[in-house]
């Protein structure tokens, strides 16, 4: 099921939390909403989950809309809220049965779905415990289990790994990757590594707007992205090499990293490698290393979110 969002706007007390957002999430793809706190990720996910009504714009789940098919859509989506609220006073199994029955899963399927979710989310040893006795990691797993209990076509996950230790984070990411193979997954997070490691498509948000959109590779190759090279030049004095490099018109900035290692930033497509090679040849220096530095998602994120 594809999710098509057009011109989505949400205003809280004269403040635009989400501003004319448009995107499409496709089946078999994980779309990551990346942004700092207050970027509008959770508000967007809440609107997608039908918890908030947009002031403007439309959300289509294939041909279904909330205005006409609210119950139908809610049966097709699974949602993990940001703070993962759960009922502490009941057991893991009772909670999952409760959620399954709310989705009106046929009675003969309920038990098998609950057992499947317990197995998928690794809750076998915790299933008889009260929810208040679970660790943060298991609570998060239970949150994901309730979101998947009815085998939804669209999964909305809001900050699924916040507050987890590295092992727990790895476990949750593996579950999300498995889901992404056959469902439409929309994942909101402020953790760059999470988005980088799990998502096929990334949407960087700031102040309710999309600042950049595409696959991680596409974002790295964005036309306004800098091209960086790490070079190690030997056979000369460092100040002389530094001065000579600075005089090359293609180089926008230069940083001395370590001993004779430099990182140069330049505009892409200017054949900087050739210019550096000519410079070394003229001065009788030699290059021991020249590596293109791939722009990290973190750099792109910082760049686009600091624009505003």
């Amino acid at each position: 099921m594809n999710v098509i969002v057009k011109d989505l706007t949400k205003i809280f007390d004269y403040q635009k939390a989400v501003d004319s957002l448009s995107f499409e999430a496709k089946k078999g793809e994980i779309l990551g909403l990346l942004g700092p706190y207050g970027a509008g990720k959770s508000t967007t996910l809440k609107m997608l989950a039908g918890l908030l009504r947009p002031n403007q714009g439309s959300i289509h789940f294939d041909n279904y809309t909330y205005e006409k098919n609210e119950s139908k859509i809610k049966k097709l989506i699974g949602y993990l809220p940001e703070k993962n609220p759960l009922y502490d006073a009941i057991s893991v199994t009772d909670f999952l049965f409760y959620m399954a029955k709310l989705y009106d899963i046929p009675r003969y399927k309920v038990t098998s779905r609950v057992l499947d979710m317990i197995s998928l989310c690794g809750l076998e040893n915790e299933k008889h415990k009260l929810i208040k006795e679970l660790s943060k990691g298991y609570r998060q797993r239970l949150g994901i289990a309730q979101a998947l209990i009815h085998d939804p076509e669209v999964v909305l996950l809001d900050e699924p790994t916040t507050g987890l230790d590295p092992n727990q984070t790895f476990g949750i990411r593996e579950i999300i990757k498995t889901l992404g193979q056959e469902k439409t997954v929309i994942l909101g997070s402020h953790i760059l590594s999470e988005i980088e490691n799990t998502c096929d498509q990334v949407m960087i948000m700031s102040k309710g707007q999309i600042m950049a959109q595409g696959t991680t590779a596409e974002l790295r190759q964005a036309p306004n992205s800098d091209f960086s090279l790490k070079i190690v030049i030997k056979g000369g004095e460092i100040p002389a090499i530094q001065e000579a490099l600075n005089q090359l018109p293609q180089i926008k900035s230069l940083q001395l990293q370590h001993k004779q290692e430099f990182e140069v930033h330049c505009t892409p497509g200017q054949e900087i490698e050739r210019a550096i090679f000519e410079l070394c040849k003229d001065n009788d220096w030699y290059i021991t290393e020249m590596t293109p530095v791939q722009m990290r998602l973190e750099d792109i994120f910082r760049k686009v979110t600091q624009k505003q």
Binding site: K46, A49, G50, L51, E70, S71, K74, K75, I77, Y79, P81, K83, P85, L86, Y87, D88, M99, L102, Y103, D104, Q146
Partner: peptide, 13 residues
């Protein structure tokens, strides 16, 4: 208070 409203209203009820 516990935010379970969000959980409930994301279900078809």
């Amino acid at each position: 208070r516990d935010g379970t409203f969000q959980l409930l209203f994301s279900k078809p009820i």
